[in-house]
């Protein structure tokens, strides 16, 4: 059992193929179609089961990726807020020039090798995951 990688993206195809790519690298992932769904699910997890990494899309209805990250950090500073977050974006580079500290940006179209490298760096077996808490 591993700490999964979480993928939040409103585009069904993108979400599916991101999950699929990770699956073939032996990385378990949980996909969400919206930031709200992700929060509802993640906020109910005990710290031991938190994901090791969250990929979140910037442009999404209702709550965008940046709002999600900021909300997690504010509302759950000791749990969800501490998970490394990667913001994926298809917008112009200029639009996302200024990023709050500690957020990694992943440009769309996504380079698969780069994406998998990031996921692998953070993916950790559940037992060894004590560092998050």
């Amino acid at each position: 059992m591993n700490h999964p990688v979480c993928i939040i993206d409103d585009d069904d195809d993108v979400r599916e193929v991101m999950s699929f790519a990770l699956e073939y690298e032996g990385i378990q992932s949980i996909p969400f179609a919206s930031a709200m769904q992700a929060e509802a699910y993640l906020s109910n997890l005990t710290p031991d089961y938190l994901p090791s990494l969250i990929f979140v899309d910037f442009m999404m209805p209702e709550m965008d990726g940046l709002e999600f990250i900021n909300l997690m950090r504010k509302k759950y500073p000791d749990t969800l807020g501490r998970i490394p977050m990667v913001l994926s974006t298809a917008r112009l580079a200029e639009d996302t020039d200024v990023m709050p500290a500690g957020i990694v940006k992943l440009e769309k179209p996504i380079d698969l090798d780069h994406f998998i490298r990031i996921a692998k760096e953070h993916y950790s077996p559940l037992e060894k995951h004590a560092s998050v808490s």
Partner: peptide, 9 residues
């Protein structure tokens, strides 16, 4: 993004 990911996979 979707097309490129599929082909890269």
């Amino acid at each position: 993004t979707s097309i490129k990911l599929q082909t890269q996979v």
